[in-house]
Nucleic acid binder design. Structure first.
Lengths: 342, 342
DNA sequence: ATCCCGAATGGAACCGGTTCCATACTGCCC
DNA sequence: GGGCAGTATGGAACCGGTTCCATTCGGGAT
């Protein structure tokens, strides 16, 4: 309704001056500025971001691509991203994209190409080269969370090392028969997270001289997922492992619930360790490796906005920020019942 | 980069014609249309939504206000909203607002007032009259999910009736000593959900001639919340209720986990019923009232877009769509151990 | 043959800001 | 006293679309 021309008229100055006064760019006398500000306030003027974007090319809005909303890691990231962006004066436009789908193509071709945002944060989505190129051509910086993307600054934990660490914790307690429950490569999340954690597990086991033959089960990264595998695998005491390394806390908790139902004592009969630092971990006394999604999110925002301020070379930006995880030992892990064989 | 003027030049027509050809409005010969479309494709033209919004006043974007992201109901709603909006060609801009905060004011004054969206969906947020008025003045339709807002079409379940139904289920099984665990009015979610469910509980109890004196506990709407109350309340067999009506499935599951740890048999020693239809309900065999957040979300989108198409009178739009809940009986509820007193 | 109407198209104004350029005034230095 | 740098302001172009208005053309009715 009210345009800057109205403000200018009321304040008795030119549009250009009103614009300068309100945006703080260029020379304006203190006296004029206050006149303009008063006029703007009087008629309840709010600038149209569309008009401004049209000429400046900046939208003050960031696009976020994310494959899940309800899973813990992602909802934490999302919440932090929103907060951090809001603080910096940016809107957040959300694209919830299951890994590969027709929607995905339409988002890239139709939505993202419209340049309604100044930059993109991609959470746990492995973008294809073509998709990265598209964004590059549009001159929109891109930051990733949760896994490396070619030519893009990414913030993540070291999945291989983390899985190693978790496995070594169990090994150091004396476990030899360890089961790893994680995501399948065919999962909707087409990232390397799953295979990396599996790799870390395998390398720790092999280093300890143990085979990983038949010691992996795949399931959804959810509580019912872990519960299902738990019921299926833990039932027979003869084939039961002494410890489980779950690739996420939700899986780990599902396993604990299953164990309790089967009358299996945790940790006496079964040790369980997860990865995440899920808020439920404490009440299930779960030993876990805490990663810090909120920290990852805030870092991503900082990095993206810095890139917007002063664009760097593509090559320079092409690096990985690895965040530490920390082991929180609770009472879901202990040594096996018969440390030196029956 | 490429503007519609480039397309027009390449196709050998005027800007106006190119615009008509691409947008499908007004008269254009089939021949010209295909020439223009081909030209656009050739140079990879993508329209600038900013420029279009500037003149049409439409942004093809919807703002969503939501107090939580990670809690089940909200993440479900969010996921569905995003899908439904995307299908209709709308972007979704997310504002994650804890009920009352300085951020909240800034969102309204700064972000929402900028009119970067055609309409707003408010999920579980009780907007103040002033906030509703602001949106009205901006001419932006508003639809609510999860609780009534003055003068706004809202989609919700009937919380009073649902709580009644849940309580009556327990009563019909013969329970007399029923505890209600729900949210406190002081919770971040300043909606009437909590008090409504409490009212429904109380009225069912009173109708059955039972007192509700001391039969309410408040906690967070989370699994650890219910777990904490469960541990605190269920320990003493003499004061233990025979049934719990939890205001959400997460609370209910927390209670079940606590009960299991305390060695209390569910349902033999304790019946538990929740509200939600949470995906974890099945694995905990929880009897619950399913509400359908995804259905609520899609209805909200339909309603909002209809309102955008053809604005109705404020008074006409001022109504409530009540969605049904359905009782799913699993094995967390049964009759009390001593149906007719010890 | 004349008139009228609808289809097709081009020119130009417009949406609401930002920014370039020109102009004017001030004060300071040589 | 003339020139110059720095501050303050206005006019106008511009961003990239949409839409109003005018013009032209072809065909059917009179």
């Amino acid at each position: 309704m009210r345009s800057i021309a109205d403000v200018a008229r009321l304040a008795g100055v030119a549009k250009a001056t009103a614009s300068r006064a309100l945006s703080g760019r260029g020379y304006v006398s203190e006296e004029t500025r206050s006149k303009v500000v008063a006029a703007a306030k009087e008629i309840g003027y709010v600038a149209s971001p569309n008009a401004a974007s049209l000429v400046t090319g900046r939208t003050k809005s960031i696009g976020v691509i994310i494959p899940f909303i309800s899973r813990w890691f992602f909802s934490e990231v999302l919440e932090s991203l929103e907060q951090a962006l809001l603080e910096e004066g940016y809107d957040m436009t959300l694209y919830n994209l299951p890994a590969a789908s027709k929607e995905r193509d339409s988002v890239f071709e139709y939505f993202l190409a419209r340049k309604r945002f100044d930059g993109v944060i991609s959470v746990g989505v492995a973008l294809s080269d073509a998709e990265v190129d598209l964004l590059h051509r549009l001159g929109r910086p891109l930051v990733g969370i949760g896994g490396p993307i070619r030519g893009v600054h990414t913030i993540a934990i070291d999945d291989v090392a983390s899985a190693r660490l978790a496995t070594e914790h169990l090994l150091s307690l004396g476990h030899k028969d360890i089961l790893h429950i994680g995501g399948s490569e065919a999962d909707e999340m087409d990232f390397k997270v799953h295979s990396n954690r599996r790799t870390g597990f395998a390398s720790a086991m092999n280093e300890a001289g143990l085979s990983t033959e038949g010691s992996f089960y795949a399931c959804e990264f959810t509580l019912p997922g872990g519960y299902g595998v738990g019921l299926a695998v833990l039932g027979d005491p003869r084939t039961r492992p002494t410890a489980v390394f779950a690739a996420s806390d939700e899986i780990a908790i599902g396993v604990i619930v299953a164990a309790r139902e089967l009358g299996i004592q945790v940790p006496a009969d079964l040790s369980v360790i997860g990865i995440d630092g899920h808020p439920y971990a404490q009440m299930f006394r779960l030993t876990t490796l805490e990663q810090h999604p909120r920290r990852q999110a805030r870092l991503a925002v900082v990095s993206l906005l810095a890139e917007l301020e002063s664009p760097t070379d593509t090559d320079e930006a092409n690096h990985l920020t690895v965040l530490p995880v920390n082991l929180v030992v609770r009472s879901s892990t202990s040594g096996p019942r018969q440390p030196l064989g029956a």
